[in-house]
């Protein structure tokens, strides 16, 4: 292996380089892919808020009112709607992962089309939540 590396690989400087993250502009699918992972991590952190909210409800009317008071602050409202959008984005891209698992929709044109569809769907679901729930 070492001999192979030294004589064949290292001397051939014209071989194609791999896409380096700092030099390579990610395609839309790549951006969505890393966003899926980032939203997943953030949503996991958001579960702390869920534990707080449901514990406040279990604590009775007083702790519930205190929780509503605190989370009514505009910054927490912003975090809440960020959470909702992240949730729907993660859900939509998750569904696409399930479609990918069937081995279909991997060609470039379909990849880009589905990327736009899932971005649209997550936005629509968030707006529906804003209006109907």
């Amino acid at each position: 292996m070492n001999t192979f590396w030294n004589t064949t690989m290292a001397s051939n400087s014209s071989r194609p380089t791999s896409p380096h993250l700092q030099a390579y502009r990610l395609p839309l699918t790549g951006i969505i892919s890393i966003t899926h992972r980032m939203t997943g991590v953030m949503l996991s952190g958001g579960l702390l808020f869920f534990v707080y909210i449901i514990s406040a409800l279990a604590g009775g009317a007083d702790s519930y009112a205190a929780m509503q008071d605190l989370l009514g602050f505009w910054l927490f409202r912003l975090v809440y709607w960020g959470f909702v959008y992240a949730l729907f984005f993660h859900l939509c891209h998750g569904v696409r992962h399930l479609i990918w698992d069937t081995g279909k929709t991997f060609d470039r044109k379909t990849l880009d089309r589905y990327a736009m569809i899932e971005l649209g769907c997550s936005l629509v679901l968030t707006l529906m939540t804003l209006i109907f729930v």
Partner: peptide, 15 residues
Amino acid sequence: VPLTLWLITFLDMSL
């Protein structure tokens, strides 16, 4: 996927 509906409803009511 379906259970998300209950989470959203619960969060919205709680807030």
